[in-house]
């Protein structure tokens, strides 16, 4: 049985390579059928904002790419409720079907996976 990996993505989408790198790990792992989860934390929740238009800053559409995660077999998707609330994002208007977790649930989530990496 392959080890499960939780990828914590905590950087905003257009500021640097981190958000893209976290997604690439998830897509590559998913293509190999690894048991993966992905958690959006801190500024990482901005990746989930609806109706982003990254072509305005000459970037590839990370938000569209994120939609492919379930197709790549990555169906365990989570977001930090505290991070969303602090950033004024509405849990019901996100671009991905994530499960929103409180702090205690985040602790349990991290405990459940064999390995964790935070980008």
């Amino acid at each position: 049985m392959a080890k499960s990996l939780l990828i914590i993505s905590r950087q905003a989408p257009w500021s640097g390579p981190s958000a893209r790198e976290a997604l690439d790990i998830a897509l590559a792992g998913g293509a190999f059928d690894l048991p993966l989860g992905m958690l959006f934390l801190d500024d990482g929740v901005f990746q989930l904002a609806a109706a982003q238009q990254p072509d305005a800053v000459q970037q590839k559409n990370l938000a569209a790419n994120l939609q492919a995660l379930p197709m790549f077999g990555v169906e365990e998707l989570f977001a930090c409720g505290h991070s969303l609330a602090r950033r004024g994002l509405d849990n019901d208007a996100l671009s991905l079907p994530v499960e929103v977790l409180d702090n205690a649930a985040l602790t349990a989530l991290i405990a459940r996976f064999d390995q964790v990496v935070t980008l």
Binding site: L27, A31, D33, K60, A64, N65, A68, M71, F72, G73
Partner: peptide, 8 residues
């Protein structure tokens, strides 16, 4: 906005 690998 990306090309699928085999599984997807």
């Amino acid at each position: 906005q990306l090309s699928p690998a085999t599984r997807p």
